[in-house]
Design a protein around this nucleic acid. Structure first.
Length: 577
DNA sequence: TTAGGGTTAG
């Protein structure tokens, strides 16, 4: 009776997810395996949207089936691929193969799409081999998915070969070929393909606009935008994004205001545009104007606060996101910005809480997120924990090495920092200004003057011009070692205006080594650059006192009191308890 | 098949 009842219910094509959920448990608990295929088809066809609940039911049914069939599995692969769960889609495809079933066209094209999106070239190649094995190479969808895979993993030659051999092409095939040339940076070939497309659709035009926008040729991008017969949201968004990436946020805003319709992408692009040029207020204004904010909008705003030195606001917004009324699940990217904000504030405890949050919600640690954690742990003094994460990275890139080198530097582990630097060069990764800053910090903490100097001078071999901060670290290093004249000469040789921190480092060194003449020069420059700060007067007063020039010392201290200025209290990196 | 959010110093 129950079987018949469920069966008739499942034959209804307009079932809601709730109705489907209700019939799921009797199917499983009673072992009605004959109904599983029907159930699976219904849930895959009559529901949309990437909900964890749907995914759970699909999974549960698939792995419970007594007689798994290729078509159901193919639908499942397509479902996960279409909903952005590419890894799951591909692992289901692999499972389908292991069951000895013949994959459908859906399974082939969807698993190829999944491989293309996650850059899994090897996986894609194995699907390609299967396509030949099962002899389904004739389908234009599968052929196009293959073409797109080769385009996306950067193998334009293979893509072109496939394209040339295709017996039938549709506009998607042409567009895939076009985007292959565009992503490989070959604009000339892309233009040739674009001109040859028999029936260009809106995507063809959008791809070409994006291509010009990415190389900063906004004139050409706009020309195409004006020429195109019909525009969709992606066309407008491509133009906004082009302006944002070329640093022209005003023009981006003009286009944004002129748009007939906007979607989340438009808003997010604008928010990130303001973020890149440091206009946090305008970004927040847009953020507040939005009604239904999805996770990516929060991510853009949190990242904006984080990268513009407002870490407290970033954390505050993150907390708002989790509040019951809002209740938006963060992802790896949200957490990366939040961890970076914690790092700026020295909020180690909050970082630990996030770690447990990740465990609870099954959020995986990816390399970007791990880099942010490495920085937080290292800055908080947990260098071993940072190193452990560093060693576990899938790909160690410029950022990971730089973060780890700086981490060793601030923890006084100069030898480790140097070793990492060598390891990085051996890995073929070019250091940048941030890497050198970390390395110089390491030399500075260890008091290795000659090595530090050598490192500083070697920067130009890499084509890098030291910034004010690199000079500041060198002045500090020389100064602490008592090489005050050299430090002074270095400041005088600077190609840019030294900031108060540079002169401050010299002043501090003069205090340590009781050098009045240079101390006076350094202090005068500090007074000019930061007139309100009294710490410099106190330092100079102490230098006078050290050589028993009590009158001068007293005069300076008196001047400080007269101005009613108080000394700025010291601050710590560590979180206050 | 096209458009959006993340990591290293100061």
């Amino acid at each position: 009776m129950l079987v018949r009842k469920i069966k008739s219910l499942l034959k209804n094509n307009s079932l809601t997810l709730d109705q489907l959920k209700q019939v799921h448990s009797p199917i499983i608990t009673n072992g009605f395996c004959q109904l599983e295929t029907l159930f699976l088809r219904q849930i895959l066809l009559s529901t949309s949207g990437n909900s964890r609940v749907i995914a759970q039911h699909i999974y549960g049914t698939l792995f419970h089936m007594q007689n798994p069939d290729a078509l159901s599995w193919g639908f499942a692969v397509r479902f996960f691929s279409a909903n952005g769960q590419f890894k799951t889609a591909f692992s289901l495809y692999v499972h389908l193969q292991r069951l000895g079933l013949c994959p459908s066209s859906f399974a082939f094209s969807s698993s190829l799409k999944a491989c293309a999106r996650i850059g899994h070239k090897l996986g894609g190649l194995s699907v390609h081999a299967q396509v030949y094995k099962y002899g389904v190479c004739g389908s234009v969808y599968v052929q196009t998915a293959l073409l797109d895979l080769y385009s996306k993993v950067g193998d334009v030659k293979s893509a072109q070969k496939l394209f040339d051999e295709m017996p039938e092409r549709n506009v998607v095939s042409w567009n895939s070929m076009l985007s292959g040339y565009l992503s490989s940076g070959d604009l000339e070939m892309a233009k040739r393909v674009f001109d040859e497309i028999p029936k260009k659709d809106v995507v063809s035009w959008n791809c070409m606009i994006t291509g010009y926008a990415k190389i900063g040729n906004m004139d050409e991008a706009i020309l195409l935008f004006e020429l195109m017969p019909e525009r969709n949201l992606a066309s407008w968004n491509a133009v906004i994004s082009g302006y944002v990436n070329s640093g022209n946020v005003e023009s981006a805003r003009r286009v944004f205001d002129a748009m007939p319709m906007r979607n989340n992408v438009s808003w997010i692009t604008m928010i990130s545009g303001y973020s890149k040029c440091g206009d946090v207020l305008s970004a927040r204004l847009l953020f507040d104007q939005m009604n239904d904010k999805e996770m990516l909008v929060y991510n853009a705003m949190i990242a904006c606060y984080e990268r513009n030195n407002q870490p407290k606001e970033a954390i505050e917004l993150f907390n708002q996101m989790l509040k019951p009324g809002v209740n938006i699940q963060p992802d790896e990217m949200t957490l990366t910005s939040v961890i970076s904000a914690c790092s700026q504030l020295g909020y180690m405890d909050f970082g630990l809480w996030i770690e447990s949050y990740m465990k609870l919600h099954g959020i995986q640690m990816d390399d970007h997120l791990a880099n942010a954690f490495i920085d937080l742990y290292a800055k908080s003094g947990y260098i071993d924990k940072a190193l452990e994460l560093f060693r576990g990275l899938k790909n160690k890139d410029l950022v990971s090495y730089s973060a780890m080198i700086s981490g060793c530097g601030v923890n006084g582990k100069a030898v480790d920092a140097i070793k990492l630097f060598e390891e990085m060069l051996n890995d073929g990764i070019c250091p940048n200004l941030v890497t050198y800053k970390g390395l110089l910090t390491a030399y500075n903490h260890a008091g290795l003057v000659e090595e530090g100097y050598k490192c500083f001078n070697s920067m130009k071999d890499q084509g890098l011009l030291p910034s004010v901060d690199h000079y500041g670290t060198m002045v500090d290093l020389l100064g602490r070692a008592g090489r005050l004249e050299e430090a002074h000469e270095l400041i005088k040789s600077m190609p840019m205006q030294p900031h108060a921190g540079v002169w401050g480092a010299l002043l501090l060194a003069c205090r340590v080594h009781n050098n009045v003449d240079l101390g006076e020069i350094a202090a005068r420059n500090c007074f000019d650059l930061q007139p309100g700060k009294t710490g410099y007067s106190s330092l100079l007063a102490n230098i006078y006192a050290s050589v028993e020039r009590w009158d001068d010392a007293g005069r300076l201290r008196g001047a400080v009191e007269e101005k009613g200025l108080t000394k700025i209290p010291g601050c710590s990196w560590m979180e206050s308890v």
